[in-house]
Design a protein around this nucleic acid. Sequence first.
DNA 1: TTCGAGTTGAATGT
DNA 2: ACATTCAACTCGAA
Length: 548
Amino acid sequence: MSSKQTVVHWFRKGLRVHDNPALASAVQRVTDAPLANFVLRPIFILDPEIRKWLKVGPNRWRFLQQSLDDLDQNLRKLNSRLYVVRGDPVEVFPKLFQQWNVCLLTYEYDIEPYAIKRDAIVHKYANEREIEVLVEKSHTIYDPNVILSKNGGKVPLTYQKYGNLASTCKQPNPVDVPSQLREGCDPEQDETERKDLHCYDVPGLKELGVEQKELGECKFPGGETEGLRRLQEYMKRKTWVCSFEKPNTSPNSLEPSTTVLSPYVKFGCLSSRLFMNELNKVLKGQKHSQPPVSLVGQLMWREFYYCAAAAEPNFDKMVGNKICLQVPWETNQAHLEAWSHGRTGYPFIDAIMRQLRQEGWIHHLARHAVACFLTRGDLWISWEEGQRVFEELLLDADWALNAGNWMWLSASAFFHQYFRVYSPVAFGKKTDPEGQYIKKYVPELSKYPSGIIYEPWKASPQVQAKLGCVIGKDYPKRIVIHEEISKLNIQKMTKAYRDNRNAKDEAIADDQDANQFTNKRKTSITPSKSPSKKVKRENTMDRYLKRE
DNA sequence: TTCGAGTTGAATGT
DNA sequence: ACATTCAACTCGAA
C-alpha cells in the first residue's frame, strides 16, 4: 500500500480533458496540496460482465475503445495516464479506496437511473471511509433539476415551455484544460507498483469481445481529439452554421448533411457547453436561423430530453411511465427482424436500416422515417423494441434522447399529431429522387431506374428479371401495404388516445371522490364534482357515440 | 373554457 | 415555391 494519498477522478461519460470541472477540481486539489503527498489517478471502470446485460454492437464498442485510447493519450500529454480498472464499480471501489489510500473522489453527475443507483452506493462506501466525494455537473448545459424546480416540479412537455424556463438560466462557461495533471507527483516511481501497471492499460477490441470481421468501415472514429477536430471543421463554415435548418437537411444524402457530432457529445468526448459556446461565437452579430431548427436548437433538444428523462425513472418504458401514452402495441418477431435487418421490402426503409447497421449513424429524419414505420405508421410494434435496436447500433445512442425521440415519433409523448404519417415511398423521394442512397445501401436494386426504385414491386415480373432483381426472390416483397395499414393504424391511435383520456378522467374523478369523502368527514363541506370535468366526460362520450 | 401552436406529412392543387 | 385539404391530437396561455 502506498503511503501517499490518492485523488481519483472517475471517467464515465465525459471522456475528455477539456471543459471537465470534476477533473479540474481533482487537479486543483493535488496542485494546492504539499508536493509529493498527493497522487492523481484518472480512472475508467470497465465491467467485463456488462456484455451479459447490455446489448451494444461492435461499432459502438469500437467507438468507446477509440475514445478511451484517445483519452489515455491526452492524459499522457499532461504527464498522466488513464487507469482502466476491470470490474463492477460497486466492487472495485472498496478495494481501490484501500489499495490506493484514496482521499478524494471526483466525477461528473449522470441523470440515468442506473447511474444514480450505482453512484449512491459508491458515495456511501466513500462516506463510510471518510473519503471526500466531489460531483460536478457538466454533461448538459443546464441542470435538469434546476429547470424542473423552476417549473414547480412539473416536467415541461413542450420544447417552447422548456426554452422559456431555460432562458431564465445563465449559460455556464466551459472550464480550461488543466495545464498539468501531476505536478511533481509520480505514481509510477514506486517500484512495486510499476510492474503491475499494465493491468490498467486501455483494452483492445478483443477484450471488448469485438471481432475485426464484424466491424463496418470506421467513418467516425471515437475520441476527444476527433470530436474537437470535427467541431472546428464545422465552425469554420460560418455561412452554413448561420443558415442551418434541420428540416431542410437531407436524410438520404451519400455524405452526412449534418455535423455528426452527436456520438462525441453522447460520450462526452465533446462538451455540449463548449459546442454551445463556439456556436454563439460564430452567430454573434450575424443574421442566423433560430431554435428549434437551428444548430443551437439541436443542442436545446438534447437539454429538453435530458430534463424530461431526469424527472421520470421509467422514461425508457411505456408501462409505469407517467408521460407516455399507453398503446396496445403488438408483437411480431418476423416483422421486427425484417425491420431491424433492412428486409421490409421498402427500399428507403431498408437502406436506412442497413446504413445504421454498417456505419452506426443515420440522419435524424431517416430515424423519423424508420421509427414511424416500426410503430404507429406501419408495423404497430412497440417503440421499446426500436429503442433496443437503436441502443445496439447507434454510435450516439443516449438513454434520454433515444427514449425521448422514440416516444416522440410513436406519438406517445411530446408529439401528438399522429395522423401525420411518413410515407416509406414518398418521403425519401423529396431529397433523392434518383434513389442514389438506395442504390448504395440496397445494391440488389442498383439497376432499377428512378421512376420505380422506391416501389420495385410495381415493376412487372419481366421488367424485374431484366433489371436483375426479382421481388420475392432477390429482394423481399413488402411486408405490409402502407397505403392500407397506415389508415388502420391512425384509427388505432385515435382509440388509444381516447382510452388514455378516459382512463385519465376516471383517475381524476376517483381522486375527487376520495377527496370528497375525506372532506366530508373532516370539515362537513360537500363539494360537488367539478362541472367542467363532467362536461368533458360527456363530450368524450358524445364523440364516442357519434363515431360508432 | 377556449384557442393557437406545434422542428421536419402527403396529396393535390396553383 | 407555396396553399389547401385531409383528420384531429395535446399543451399551455389567456
